[in-house]
Each structure stands twice: as structure tokens, then as C-alpha cells.
Nucleic acid binder design. Structure first.
Length: 740
DNA sequence: GAGCACTGC
């Protein structure tokens, strides 16, 4: 086939897309208004075609067309396809930019990118002077970055003073979403026009089951039910692959084991409805699985064999498997929720939303009509499942977001135009933490340190520790640690008990090599050992270390180092001196970033946090401090894991002296007082009043009683009663100790 | 004495 005919067929293909008939009207609609909402289900062609139409219409003579995607792979693959359709080399007229991979050039006019990348660009150029059109795609997914971009663009463009500032021509914004959220988006963007494009998907019939009722919101019995249903489908439905949705790795492995076991007993002569079906291929799928094993999922099964993929939510949006005709939906998902009261992120299993259930069902109708079997009852659907998934911005810690906004000149972070407002206490919590890290001052203004911090793609605490290390000239200790802590868990723990023992032994040995009492030091040593190894991937395999994760830690470390060196070129980068040994230096730097996560020994392996909540936490058995006998009274920790207990992982022993001056800062500013700072409504009088109160409150050592008083003032009943219960418990314990 | 979904900069 010659090149031109191949392209002709591509062109015909794109002419058959539902969007093609609306080409002229769509281009006109973009020209006519500042904001435009475009809706269309998957398969309408909006992502690949609209940028081409706008390019053809000459809209990019002033500047680029930028299209955001919530995921890297989407940005890359769509750019590849569009470059092919436009017959140009990828990276020239059509390009993409994602973290660690910039495939654009001077000529690039159609630029696909991740939403996070565009947000970074806004930080450097708030009016996006390089762009003539910005298209936000997949807005219904409500990713954190997309939500922030939406608010920023609204704020910039709705204010006529901003619209022309720094720009010589107007910016157009197109917001693309699935049908459901269209009206809400239009209303948000001052009732801008909505352009609806019909989709091109096949019908999926859904049925409800009997296994999970509204009272079973926390049961895990659904694994068995899901397996039963999968076998039922396999034996009674016509040929076509099955996709099962569960919540996590261990659950998936359990389900697969059960399926193998039961599938063996099937007699294909009598048990199976469709006689062309002669076997079942069972495949697990989850994010931390090795990539080559993931690839297997996409290969079509041998003739006569039905494929059954048992997956996490990764199969809902990130990966598309062709040939799926049947969906089995457990109705649950694992979700990370921020709890502002205890200041912790907790990963929990929760019922999915109705819109998410529809999204899952839709995975069966990509190539032909399909069926979706929900194992939960209609009553569960009505009573336990919310209409929509709570957007990320209402579920996560906002510390980094608030700093970003403040650096963009948005001082009033409470009345910022959010599509859905986060709870005020989430914002106040973020402000409090930024203040504790010296990123903002008492009036809520970004400090010099805050300006440096915003440059790093890290959690603010980690950034704080890194900057401290840099000012002391020991950044080489912290850069790898920061990189290791910002990628997925690098320690592999297999399911089988024998291998588990072996992996644990290797991990313990690695910890021992770095002293055996500091998990952060272990991370540093793993990073260094692997990096200096001749065959790093083999080294990882031998030590039960996740090679893919470590590889990305290597890239992150390089990126962080680049950012740091760039900032150090500037004149006023802080420089300090320190006399002491390396281990102390290392741990002191960590303290600067983790003094919000200090805990003191209570009894045995139980520690008590010092953040005002006084929560009881346990050292996780994976920590090298778990079976350490040495006297540890004070520790800092990286994160919390709530399972059968409240566990802290990645732990490091410290001395009270190192944090004693920092600790009062934890109680110095109550979130309530910061609320006025957040709004920038403080008058001088208020400020003086506040300062006086603060001065009165400042005491050499913070006692539990003080924390109690503060909590009571907050009028947060649960917090108070929880804290009181804990306080009484501790008091009792002290008395018992005294008696002994 | 162990249970981490998924993205993204």
C-alpha cells in the first residue's frame, strides 16, 4: 500500500467520526465566545479532531493550541495519532509534553500535554501568552490539576483587567467533558454555550445482583460473589471476554486463585452454553504489576478460549482492553481520603458512585453491544452509592495547591472560583501547615522560602527538608531520599509465605547495611547501592526491590537536582553552617520537614503524636525500628497507614533537642485564626488582638491540657470527645505507672 | 507482627 492511499483511508476514517458533520459550526462556536463547553462520549473524535479543525481554520496564527489530558499515556498516544493524521513528524507542528519527556519544538502549534504540565507553565506565565486556545479535556474526571486550571482560567479571563494584561490577543478556552457535567460547567463559566456531539458506543444492558445490600458497605464477601458470577457468565453466556472490577492486589490474587480452582472442574461437554467456548484464561491486572506481565492482557486469547481479566480501577480509565463484552462490577473501589481532623491520608474501601458504575459498564460497549453484571442490589445502588464521585480537590491535602495558588497571586484561597469548593477546614489546614513550614508568614503572604518551595514537584514537608539540606551543603543526602519517597513503594513483598520470608530477609539486610535504625537512611543506601551496581535491574531482582519504581526515582532525583541547581544560581539562596557528624546532620534536615510528624514513646511500640491530636500510632513491622531494642523515645515518620491498627512507616529516631524549638510552632497558630489571614480581611486592630492572644498562649512547653483547651474552643464535638477520651486514658496510664 | 487504588508535576 502506498503512503498516500494509507493516508486517504485515515482521512476517510476521520470523516466518518460523529464530530465531522459539526466541523464548521464548532469552529465558529470557538471563535464566537471566550469559553465553550464541548460534550461527547468516547468515540466522538473530539480529542483528536477539534485541535485539527482549529489549526486548519488558522486560529494558531497568534499562538499555540494546547490540549490537556489527565494522563501521560493519553497525551502521548493522541499526539502520535494526530501527527500521523496531519502527516507531520511528531515533535514538529504536533507535539506533546509530559514530565521527563518534552517532544515539542519551535514549530509546535498543536501541543498535547498533561494537566499538571500546563499548571507548571501557568506558574511561569500566568496569562499563557504563548497560547491562542487552551482545551481542557476529560474535565469530568475532575483531576486536581484540571480543577485548579479551570478556576484559574475563569479568574483570569472573567476579569477584563486580566484579559488583556500581558497578551496582545484574546485567549479562548474550550472545556471538554462527558455529557453528565455539561450544565454545571456551563453555569460555572457564566453560562457559556454548550456544544454536544453524539457518541459512537454500543448499548450495554445492566443487571443487579443479590449479594451486596446497603448494609454491606464494609464487607469483603464480594470477592466470592464476583467469582461465582464470573463462572456463571463463563458457562451461560456467548463468547466474549470478561472484565472484573475489584479493589486491590491481594483481593485480585485471591479471586484469581478461586477462579483457577473452580474453572478446572468445568466439563466443557455439558456445562457450557456456547459450544465454541473451550476454556478460560484468567489474568490479574493492577498498577504495580511488572509491565511485561501487563502487556499480556492486551493480546487476544487463543481461539476458543475466553479471557477473564480481574482488575483494579486501572481498567476503568487508564487502560483499554479490546474484546470485552461482559463486565462484573463489585461496586467498590479503594480511595485515598484526606482526614483534616487528624491531618492524615487514609486509604479506604468505599462504594463507587453511580457515574463510576456507568463508566465501568461502558467498558463492555466499545466494539459491540455488551452486558454488565452488578453483584450489588438495586437498593444498594439507590441507598449507598452517591451520584458522583467526590472530586479529588475535596478529598486530598491541599498544602501544595494552596502554595501554588498563593504564588500565582491568589491570596484569597477560600473564595477562589472552585468548581466544587473544598471544605474550609481543608484549606485552613493547608494554610496552617504552610505557616509551620515557613512557606507563608502570619499574614498569609508567601515567603522567600515559599517561593523556592513551589518550584519542587514534592510534598511541602519533603521540600522543606531538602532545602534545609541544600542550605547546609548536604543535599546529596536528601535528594535521593526525596526521590524515593515520591515514587511508589520500592520494597516488593510477594504473596507466597516462602518468598515473603526471603524478601523480608533481604530487606532487613539492606537496612542493617545503613545502620539498621533509620528507614530514611535505608532508602538512601538502596538508591546508592543500586545506582553503583553493574547490573541494576538484576540487583533489584536479587534484593526484592521494585526496579521500575527505582528507575523512576533515579529520574526524579535528576529532576530535583536540576531544579535545585537552577535555584542556587540565584543570589539569595540561604546558606547555613553546621558542626556535627553526618548521621546527625541527615536527621536534623529531616526534622525540619517532618516536625509535624513527631511522636513520643508511650508504651512499648506505641507512640503518641505531638500534633495536637495526640493520636496513638504503632511502628509498622516493615520498619527497621520494629524489632530494635535500643532506647527510642522520640521519632519522626513519613506516613501513616490505617489497617488493623494505625501504623507509621518510614521512621527515624531523633533527639528531643532537635525539635524542641520547632514543636511550639505546631500549636502556635490555630486554624481558626488563620481563617482571617486566608481571606486577607485582617485589619491592624485584629492583627494586634491576635498577636496579643498568641503571646499569651505561648508557653515553654505545650501540655496536653493546653491542647485540650484549644480543641474545645474549636467547637468540634467529635474532636473534643475523642481527645478527652485519649487524655483520660493517658492520665490513667500515668497514674498506673506511678503506682508501679 | 505486616494487607498500597489510581493519577500527576
Amino acid at each position: 500500500m502506498s503512503k498516500s492511499t494509507r493516508w486517504d483511508s485515515k482521512e476517510n476514517e476521520s470523516k466518518q467520526l460523529p464530530i465531522y458533520r459539526h466541523k464548521a459550526k464548532l469552529v465558529q462556536a470557538v471563535k464566537d465566545s471566550t469559553f465553550l463547553v464541548v460534550t461527547g462520549e468516547t468515540g466522538s473524535g473530539k480529542t483528536t479532531q477539534l485541535p485539527q479543525y482549529l489549526h486548519e481554520a488558522g486560529i494558531c496564527k497568534n499562538g499555540k493550541i494546547g490540549i490537556t489530558q489527565p494522563r501521560r499515556v493519553a497525551a502521548i498516544t493522541v499526539a502520535q495519532r494526530v501527527a500521523q493524521e496531519m502527516q507531520c513528524t511528531l515533535g514538529r507542528e504536533v507535539g506533546y509534553q509530559v514530565r521527563f519527556d518534552d517532544c515539542t519544538s519551535q514549530d509546535t502549534v498543536v501541543k498535547y500535554m498533561t494537566d499538571g504540565c500546563l499548571l507548571r507553565e501557568v506558574l511561569a506565565d500566568p496569562v499563557l501568552s504563548q497560547y491562542s486556545v487552551v482545551i481542557l479535556d476529560e474535565v469530568h474526571e475532575r483531576s486536581l490539576s484540571t480543577d485548579i486550571l479551570l478556576g484559574l482560567l475563569k479568574k483570569v479571563l472573567m476579569d477584563p483587567a486580566n484579559a488583556t494584561k500581558g497578551r496582545s490577543f484574546p485567549l479562548k478556552v474550550v472545556v471538554m467533558s462527558a455529557t453528565l457535567e455539561a450544565d454545571k460547567l456551563s453555569a460555572f463559566l457564566s453560562n457559556c454555550p454548550v456544544f454536544a456531539i453524539p457518541g459512537r458506543t454500543f448499548p450495554v444492558t445492566c443487571t443487579f445482583g443479590t449479594a451486596v445490600g446497603p448494609k454491606d458497605t464494609e464487607s469483603t464477601g464480594y470477592v466470592k460473589e464476583v467469582v461465582k458470577m464470573a463462572l456463571d457468565v463463563h458457562t451461560s453466556e456467548m463468547a466474549g471476554d470478561i472484565l472484573v472490577f475489584l479493589t486491590g492486589q491481594s483481593e485480585i490474587e485471591r479471586a484469581c486463585d478461586l477462579l483457577y480452582e473452580k474453572a478446572e472442574t468445568i466439563d466443557y461437554r455439558y456445562d457450557v452454553q456456547d459450544q465454541t467456548v473451550e476454556g478460560l484464561l484468567i489474568l490479574p491486572l493492577y498498577g504495580s504489576m511488572p509491565t511485561d506481565q501487563q502487556r499480556q492482557i492486551f493480546q487476544p486469547p487463543p481461539s476458543g478460549i475466553r479471557k477473564c481479566v480481574v482488575a483494579t480501577n486501572i481498567a476503568a480509565t487508564s487502560l483499554t482492553i479490546s474484546g470485552i463484552k461482559y463486565i462484573i462490577d463489585s461496586g467498590f473501589v479503594k480511595q485515598l481520603n484526606h482526614n483534616s481532623r487528624v491531618g492524615m491520608d487514609i486509604l479506604e474501601v468505599v462504594p463507587i458512585s453511580k457515574s463510576e458504575a456507568q463508566q465501568r459498564a461502558g467498558r463492555a460497549g466499545r466494539t459491540s453491544a455488551g452486558k454488565c453484571f452488578r453483584i450489588y442490589t438495586k437498593e444498594f445502588w439507590e441507598k449507598s452509592m452517591p451520584e458522583y464521585t467526590v472530586p479529588e480537590i475535596q478529598r486530598t491535602s491541599l498544602t501544595a495547591v494552596v502554595l501554588t495558588l498563593k504564588c500565582l497571586g491568589v491570596h484569597d484561597v477560600i473564595r477562589f472560583p472552585y468548581l466544587d469548593c473544598p471544605e474550609e477546614r481543608f484549606i485552613l489546614g493547608a494554610l496552617k501547615q504552610l505557616y509551620q513550614f515557613d512557606a507563608i508568614d502570619r499574614r498569609g503572604k508567601v515567603t522567600r522560602l515559599g517561593e523556592l518551595m513551589v518550584e519542587f514537584p514534592l510534598h511541602p514537608g519533603l521540600t522543606r527538608a531538602l532545602l534545609k539540606a541544600a542550605s547546609l551543603g548536604c543535599e546529596d543526602l536528601l535528594l535521593p531520599v526525596a526521590a524515593m519517597l515520591s515514587v511508589e513503594n520500592i520494597f516488593i513483598r510477594p504473596g507466597h509465605p516462602e518468598k515473603q520470608k526471603e524478601a523480608d530477609k533481604k530487606h532487613r539486610a539492606l537496612a542493617a547495611k545503613s545502620g539498621g535504625t533509620n528507614d530514611f537512611a535505608t532508602l538512601l543506601s538502596v538508591f546508592q547501592l543500586c545506582k553503583s551496581s553493574d547490573r541494576p535491574s538484576a540487583w533489584c531482582k536479587d534484593h526484592w526491590i521494585h526496579w521500575r519504581a527505582l528507575k523512576s526515582a533515579f529520574s526524579v532525583e535528576i529532576q530535583l537536582k536540576d531544579i535545585l541547581h537552577r535555584l542556587q544560581q540565584k543570589r539569595d539562596f540561604p546558606v547555613e553552617k553546621f558542626d556535627g557528624n553526618k548521621s546527625e546532620l541527615f536527621r536534623r534536615c529531616l526534622c525540619t520537614g517532618y516536625f509535624t510528624n513527631v511522636a513520643r514513646r508511650s508504651v512499648g511500640k506505641v507512640f503518641c503524636t505531638m500534633d495536637g491530636n495526640g493520636s496513638m500510632v504503632h511502628i509498622h513491622p516493615s520498619s527497621s525500628l520494629f524489632d530494635e531494642e535500643v532506647e527510642l523515645n522520640w521519632i519522626i515518620f513519613h506516613d501513616v497507614l490505617v489497617t488493623s491498627r494505625v501504623y507509621i512507616r518510614t521512621v527515624c529516631p531523633i533527639r528531643y533537642d532537635w525539635v524542641k524549638d520547632l514543636l511550639p510552632k505546631l500549636h502556635e497558630v490555630d486554624a481558626y485564626e488563620l481563617s482571617s489571614v486566608a481571606r486577607q480581611e485582617v485589619t491592624d486592630e485584629e492583627m494586634i488582638k491576635w498577636e496579643t492572644r498568641e503571646a499569651a498562649k505561648r508557653q515553654p512547653e505545650v501540655s496536653t491540657e493546653d491542647i485540650m483547651k484549644k480543641l474545645e474552643k474549636r467547637n468540634d464535638e467529635t474532636a473534643v470527645s475523642d481527645a478527652r477520651a485519649r487524655y483520660l486514658q493517658r492520665k490513667q496510664q500515668r497514674q498506673q505507672n506511678k503506682a508501679l
